[in-house]
Nucleic acid binder design. Structure first.
Length: 769
DNA sequence: ATGTTTGCGCTTTTT
DNA sequence: GCGCAAACAT
């Protein structure tokens, strides 16, 4: 047997060996929380608890996987049987089993945020509401917020406070939209993310026999990152633990950073009250093993100002370590350069690897300057977050096919694939079918499946072809495993062929992505941890993946990590750079405006600081191109853009006589393009390029030479799909806001680097001092 | 029905 | 910049 107990400190041991009854572990940052949790589970198993009767809820799939792995090292393969995963994945699994009880079938679809918003968009349109007033994003977040507080559509409509709220927000019909949204999701046999939790609550509320089954089944319930649970999640755990009273929650109130998503810090603050003060055992893990004294003290001093918190004193026996550095940069680009060279220097001086470094920022958009600077210094980096693999169009397309094959009620999947690849079924036809379906009170699929009975003509034949295709796919479901079905669908649907025929660079990449998805399905089928290998099971696991779960793209893992602070939770690095530390950016102006929650921003800062083991560097820029981003795009698209702009410019036959990129204060808002003198476009391009070369920093200017013949001549390259390396500059326009708040159009530069095109834009400028 | 162009609004964090 | 939708053209 592995002796893991003797290496633990006192409170850690108490937590691991605690027997029955509610247990709350307050785990300061770096206090060995994961260790305690894994050992506790291992300890329970060694002491005779059946792994099938342990429920462990984590925040990410990755955390669950890692923990399972570590438990396996102690207790062996038994660890596989633990019910462990995120709230969403575990309860999706339970809902699959119990779907019938709440009127769903077990192959229900899971709508991701895009699906939800697309459905909301249709509903808003159908209801004849103004989509400029009813913004999809705000409607979605209102509905999501309601669901997280367990307020269903009818409660929502009957709640005077909420109605008054919507009234004053000038969106009085949100309740009706919500109601319709729920009806449509249900009709589509689909649940969104929030529904997975909401419906679990409904299931347990309305079906006491089912609740009873799980209450007795789960002898031990563990919740990791308890500070980030919302009311809906909290109630589920509370119900499940009601019989055995064996609930163990682990968390750190100081690291609660998801209130914007409905997380309720009260859950952790009130745990004792809810389970009875005398029954709850509280263990505080206060010794930090991760960071230097300097870092721990810095973190403590930030959090000390918060009012809402549990009492604890995080300390460390580690050495003092180096002082915290602050880098002041004049612009965001300089910040990038300074951080990159600081990383380079530290790496050399202390013979470290890229892996030892992380750059943490408040918003994803900030990554640009750092990417650029790191690339220039040939330091490898990886970005966590942003657009994930599963959000790519080609992936979503194939998944929509798979989803529709499994569940023909899935309206969003249907909309996506009905005319993909193009088969001559347009919007009017789809609208016609919807009308017929509504008249006959049938689902759309019932009409589509027997289209010839309802409609005749050319479009009917096309739809019949589609219906036959889906019918043939359905037949495979029971005969073949998920991988075989999926690859058949990819081929037979024509999706794969369409991508294969596309010989452009991006077409090739898309083709490979689809292959990659098929590989992932194969892996899923081959993985012994997955007891169910159906396509439906795969789809559910896939919809609940997070950006943190993405696997490493290649073998080279020695990279500097760039990510948001939120994404960094649970990770640690020797050296951490917290960047963009400016008023309104971090702390975020939006957060302060919308929620007025400076405390959460402080906790976010706390999380960021405590990721560092040895060295912490903070930086800020005096001038920042706030929404300026460096984006990758393919050469062909780039050329198209250039071409468009060029033509537009030729048409206008005018150009600004004065352009200033670097210094907004010197901008001349009174002058705009229309009143400028008419100049030849090429001359304008040249002067623009020269001007920019001058105003940019010397090293940038040196590497960029204006190319006189970049625009129309390159269209040929677009057609042949060749790489274009000689194009150096292009231009476009963006809105720019100067210090006085005056808006004007500004010209931006396109900058081509190698095979990728980088679009460098300066928009909505804001100066921070 | 489909392809192309143009204009508009948005842009915190994410299961 | 991006995604989207409306307008316009084929």
């Amino acid at each position: 047997m592995v002796d893991y107990i003797s290496g633990l400190n006192d409170p850690q041991r108490q937590a691991v060996m605690h027997g029955d009854g509610p247990l709350m572990i307050i785990a300061g940052a770096g206090s060995g929380k994961t260790r305690v949790l894994t050992y506790r589970i291992a300890y329970l198993i060694e002491n005779g608890i059946d792994p099938f009767r342990i429920l462990a809820l984590t925040f990410t799939n990755k955390a669950a996987g890692e923990m399972r792995h570590r438990i396996e090292k102690v207790v062996g393969t038994e660890a596989r049987n633990i019910w462990m995963g995120t709230f969403h994945s575990v309860f999706a699994k339970i809902l699959r089993i119990e779907a019938r009880a709440i009127g769903y079938t077990s192959n229900f679809s899971i709508y991701d945020t895009d699906d939800s918003k697309s459905l909301l968009r249709s509903i808003i349109k159908e209801m004849g509401l103004d989509d400029k007033v009813y913004r999809v994003n705000s409607v979605f977040s209102r509905i999501s917020g309601a669901k997280n507080r367990l307020i269903g559509p009818d409660d929502y409509l009957n709640n005077a406070v909420i109605q008054a709220d919507d009234e004053s927000a000038r969106m009085p019909h949100i309740g009706r939209i919500y109601k319709q949204y729920s009806v449509r999701c249900f009709a589509a046999n689909a649940m969104d993310f929030d529904d997975l939790l909401f419906n679990t609550n409904v299931l347990f509320r309305d079906h006491l026999d089912i609740l009873n089954k799980y209450q007795h089944k789960f002898q031990q319930v563990m919740v990791d990152e308890f500070q980030d649970t919302n009311i809906s999640q909290y109630l589920i755990t509370r119900k499940l633990a009601a019989v055995h009273q064996n609930i163990c929650v682990v968390g750190d109130d100081a690291q609660s950073i998801y209130a914007f998503r409905g997380a309720n810090i009260e859950n952790i603050l009130n745990f004792q009250r809810d389970y009875g003060k005398e029954n709850v055992k509280i263990v505080k893990l206060e010794q930090n093993y991760r960071s230097t004294k300097t870092i721990v003290e810095a973190a403590n001093s930030i959090i000390a100002r918060n009012k809402q918190q549990l009492e604890k004193h995080v300390f460390t026996d580690n050495e003092d370590g180096p002082p915290i550095d602050v880098i002041k940069a004049s612009s965001d680009n300089e910040e990038g350069r300074l951080v990159a060279s600081a990383i380079f220097e530290t790496k050399m001086n202390e013979s470290l690897t890229n892996n030892d470094f992380a750059i943490l920022y408040r918003t994803n958009a900030q990554s640009r300057a750092f990417e650029e600077a790191l690339r220039k210094m040939s330091i490898k980096y990886r970005i966590i977050g942003g657009l994930s693999f599963y959000q790519r169009k080609e992936i979503k397309d194939l998944i929509a096919y798979l989803r529709f094959t499994v569940n023909q009620q899935d309206e969003e999947a249907f909309k996506r694939i009905i005319n993909l690849p193009k088969r001559g079924i347009g919007d009017t036809t789809v609208a016609k079918i919807s009308v017929i379906a509504a008249e006959k009170q049938d689902s759309i699929w019932e009409i589509v499946a027997e289209i010839t009975k309802h409609v005749a003509g050319r479009s009917a034949i096309a739809i019949e072809g589609f219906a036959d295709l889906i019918k043939s796919f359905k037949l495979l479901l029971d005969q073949k495993d998920a991988y075989e079905v999926a690859s058949h669908i990819a081929k037979a649907s024509g999706l794969l062929k369409e991508l294969y025929d596309d010989k452009t660079v991006e077409g090739l990449a898309r083709y490979e992505n689809v292959q990659e998805l098929l590989n992932a399905i194969k892996e899923f089928v081959d993985n012994p941890d997955n007891e169910e290998k159906s396509l439906a099971a795969f789809l559910q696991s896939v919809s609940l993946l997070t950006s943190a779960d993405e696997k490493e793209d290649d073998g080279d893992n020695d990279k500097v990590t760039l990510m948001t602070i939120h994404a960094a939770k649970g990770l640690e690095f020797k050296n951490v750079h917290i960047v963009g530390m400016e008023e309104d950016l971090f702390p975020s102006q939006m957060m302060l405006e919308s929620r007025n929650d400076l405390e959460e921003e402080r906790r976010l800062f706390y999380v960021a600081i405590t990721r560092a083991e040895k060295r912490l560097t903070m930086s800020y820029a005096e001038t920042r191109y706030h929404y300026g981003r460096l984006k990758m795009c393919e050469p062909s698209r780039f050329l198209m853009e250039i071409d468009q702009r060029y033509l537009k410019m030729s048409k206008l036959r005018s150009a600004p006589s004065r352009m200033d990129f670097d210094r907004p204060e010197r901008a001349n808002p009174g002058r705009d393009r229309s009143e400028s003198t008419s100049t030849g476009s090429m001359a304008f391009v040249r002067s623009l390029a020269q001007k920019t070369a001058r105003t940019q920093t010397p090293q940038t200017a040196a590497t960029h030479t204006p190319s006189p013949d970049f625009a129309p001549s390159n269209t040929a390259d677009l057609a042949s799909g060749q790489r274009v390396e000689h194009a150096k500059f292009g231009f476009g326009t963006v809105k720019q806001v100067d210090v006085n708040g005056t808006e004007r159009k500004a010209t931006i530069l396109f900058d081509v680097v190698g095979e990728k095109t980088l679009l460098l834009s300066f928009a909505k400028l804001r100066v921070v001092t």
